[in-house]
């Protein structure tokens, strides 16, 4: 498993496409309306957005990835790092921020490689 993290717009998806030869069909792009992970794809982008959808439904995002760990083995996950700002006043955003932290910790612990993007520059941190 590979995890690619970094702040917004740092070039995570471009890096994933280029380094791992992904096409559009390989990638599920999540947004706030995404309520299920498509495990048939090689790459799931913006799992934090999926996380926000799950939090709004009262579900712990990390649990959605723990059901079948074997399936995660060959996958690539892209996550926006949302851990760096002020604690949000909104309780939902607060819960979201913490849940994404737990999700990233879980995936990065299981991952063979973790990459972080900064200004478009990749750095392997695991």
């Amino acid at each position: 498993m590979i995890v690619i993290i970094g702040g917004s717009y740092q070039g995570k998806l471009d890096f994933a496409r280029e380094r791992f030869g992904l096409t559009d069909d390989d990638i599920q792009i999540c947004d706030e309306t995404t309520d299920a992970i498509d495990f048939s794809r090689r790459c799931i982008a913006y799992i934090d957005r999926f996380g926000l959808n799950r939090i709004r439904s009262g579900i712990e995002p990390a649990d959605c990835f723990k059901t079948d760990p074997v399936r995660l083995k060959d996958m690539i996950f892209i996550a926006n790092d949302i851990s760096g700002g002020v604690v949000p006043v909104d309780p939902v955003l607060r819960a979201w921020r913490e849940a994404c932290g737990r999700l990233n910790l879980y995936l990065c612990r299981e991952a063979d490689e973790v990459w972080r993007l900064f200004c478009g520059i990749p750095q392997r941190i695991k």
Partner: peptide, 24 residues
Amino acid sequence: IFSDAMLYDELTEAYRRGLAAIDR
């Protein structure tokens, strides 16, 4: 300014996207 847990309006988001594009 790219790693906080906020949902910004489209204008602020355009500014963040723009700054990151310059950075890269």
